[in-house]
Simulated assay, not measured.
Amino acid sequence: MRNFTIMAGVCALAVAGTVQAAKPVQLGTPAQVKRLMDCRAIAAADQRLACFDREATAMDAAIASRNLVFVDKEKARAAGRSLFGFSIPNFGGLFGGGEDEITQIESTVKSTGHNADGGWVITLADGSVWSQTDDWPGLDPRPGKKVIVKRAALGSFRLSIPGENGIKVKRIG
């Protein structure tokens, strides 16, 4: 009973630490962009133009020094898709979140092999490599077959071939 109490306390601390660490990053509008947009409020045309020139020059310098980086939504989704399955920080929703969160990918099997436990190692056409973590034997992942990898419970992933049972997997490459 004592071991159970200690273990429950350790688990509670681990969960509390995870909740603490999971606070979202506050993105907001970068100061350089805000200052540029604030120039629109200046009524006098010559002062407004001077403000735009000054702030555009400062923004150009920030971009050149890589202190300010722009990423369009499509590139962010492509990056999020290429990282699907890896345990990465949220980066304030840069790679999705909410309605844009990637919950599954679809691809085809490029090649297969076996891991040290005898489970499947499956390389997909997109270059991602997935290793089986359960002992379900009933999967036939021949090259060229369509597969779907979905987020599952407790941060796990499930790879399935339409019409067949799926297996639990983790991304290894």
Score class of each variant (00 low, 15 high):
Met1Ala: 09
Phe4Val: 07
Val10Ile: 15
Ala12Asp: 07
Ala12Cys: 10
Ala12Ile: 01
Ala14Arg: 04
Ala16Phe: 14
Ala16Asn: 08
Ala16Gln: 08
Gly17Leu: 12
Gly17Glu: 08
Val19His: 05
Gln20Tyr: 10
Gln20Leu: 13
Gln20Ile: 10
Ala21Arg: 14
Ala22Arg: 00
Gln26Glu: 15
Pro30Leu: 06
Pro30Met: 03
Pro30Phe: 05
Ala31Gly: 13
Gln32Gly: 12
Val33Phe: 03
Leu36Cys: 02
Cys39Ala: 07
Ala43Glu: 12
Arg48Glu: 15
Arg48Gly: 15
Ala50Glu: 01
Arg54Glu: 13
Ala58Arg: 06
Met59His: 05
Asp60His: 13
Ser65Cys: 06
Ser65Pro: 05
Arg66Phe: 00
Asn67His: 04
Asn67Arg: 08
Asn67Ala: 04
Leu68Thr: 03
Val71Phe: 05
Asp72Lys: 07
Asp72Phe: 05
Asp72Gln: 07
Asp72Met: 05
Ala76Val: 05
Ala76Trp: 05
Arg77Pro: 01
Ala78Ser: 06
Ser82Ala: 14
Ser82Arg: 09
Leu83Val: 08
Leu83Phe: 09
Leu83Glu: 09
Ser87Asp: 10
Ser87Val: 10
Ile88Thr: 09
Gly93Arg: 06
Leu94Thr: 04
Phe95Ser: 03
Phe95Val: 04
Gly96Ser: 03
Glu99Phe: 07
Glu101Lys: 10
Ile105Asn: 13
Thr108Arg: 09
Val109Phe: 02
Val109Tyr: 01
Asn115Gln: 02
Trp120Ile: 15
Val121Ile: 14
Gly127His: 13
Ser128Ile: 06
Val129Arg: 06
Gln132Trp: 00
Thr133Val: 03
Gly138His: 06
Asp140Ile: 15
Asp140Gly: 10
Pro141Asn: 11
Arg142Gly: 04
Gly144Phe: 10
Leu154His: 15
Leu159Arg: 01
Leu159Tyr: 01
Leu159Cys: 01
Lys168Arg: 15
Gly173Met: 12
Gly173Pro: 05
